[in-house]
Amino acid sequence: MKVGGSYLGARVAGHSGDESLIIGFGMLPRAGVELVVIAGALTSRIIDQRLFSAVLALIIVSVLSTPPLLKHAIQRINS
């Protein structure tokens, strides 16, 4: 979702497709806020342990996948 929204925003702002992709991938590793929100929701019993674990796994995957995705997008511009 973040990648798509950032990509579209960059395209509207006049960036090329490859530049917009870099901007979109660059927005992925924003895990700090998400961790605070889901930890608070778990503590307040708004969500259960199962949902907490699923969201945490999603955060970990997005943080770990960002560097290779950015590298690939940057190489597309430089080639």
Score class of each variant (00 low, 15 high):
residue 58 L to N: 13
residue 53 S to R: 12
residue 15 H to D: 07
residue 51 L to W: 03
residue 31 A to E: 10
residue 5 G to I: 11
residue 44 S to R: 11
residue 54 A to Q: 14
residue 24 G to I: 02
residue 16 S to W: 03
residue 12 V to W: 03
residue 29 P to F: 03
residue 10 A to I: 08
residue 27 M to I: 08
residue 50 R to K: 11
residue 14 G to L: 07
residue 2 K to G: 06
residue 12 V to D: 09
residue 11 R to P: 03
residue 45 R to H: 10
residue 44 S to I: 01
residue 62 S to N: 15
residue 2 K to R: 14
residue 20 S to V: 08
residue 6 S to T: 06
residue 28 L to Y: 01
residue 61 V to F: 14
residue 6 S to K: 02
residue 60 I to E: 02
residue 58 L to T: 14
residue 53 S to E: 11
residue 22 I to R: 05
residue 63 V to N: 12
residue 51 L to R: 06
residue 32 G to L: 10
residue 18 D to P: 00
residue 2 K to V: 09
residue 63 V to H: 05
residue 17 G to E: 15
residue 60 I to T: 15
residue 51 L to S: 08
residue 22 I to K: 06
residue 7 Y to I: 10
residue 28 L to F: 01
residue 9 G to S: 15
residue 4 G to M: 12
residue 27 M to A: 15
residue 59 I to F: 07
residue 40 G to D: 08
residue 37 V to W: 00
residue 48 D to N: 15
residue 14 G to F: 03
residue 16 S to G: 13
residue 42 L to T: 02
residue 54 A to K: 13
residue 10 A to H: 06
residue 62 S to Y: 01
residue 27 M to R: 09
residue 58 L to H: 12
residue 4 G to H: 10
residue 56 L to H: 06
residue 54 A to N: 03
residue 51 L to M: 11
residue 25 F to W: 09
residue 53 S to H: 09
residue 27 M to V: 13
residue 26 G to S: 12
residue 38 I to G: 03
residue 9 G to V: 08
residue 7 Y to G: 00
residue 57 A to T: 14
residue 63 V to A: 10
residue 39 A to Q: 15
residue 62 S to Q: 07
residue 44 S to M: 07
residue 31 A to N: 05
residue 9 G to L: 15
residue 36 V to Q: 06
residue 12 V to I: 14
residue 5 G to D: 09
residue 13 A to Y: 09
residue 17 G to Y: 11
residue 11 R to E: 03
residue 63 V to P: 01
residue 23 I to W: 00
residue 5 G to E: 07
residue 35 L to G: 01
residue 60 I to M: 12
residue 35 L to T: 02
residue 44 S to Q: 12
residue 33 V to E: 01
residue 59 I to M: 09
residue 34 E to M: 14
residue 21 L to N: 04
residue 61 V to R: 02
residue 38 I to L: 12
residue 27 M to E: 14
residue 8 L to G: 11
residue 34 E to P: 00
residue 31 A to C: 09
residue 47 I to N: 08
residue 47 I to G: 01
residue 16 S to N: 04
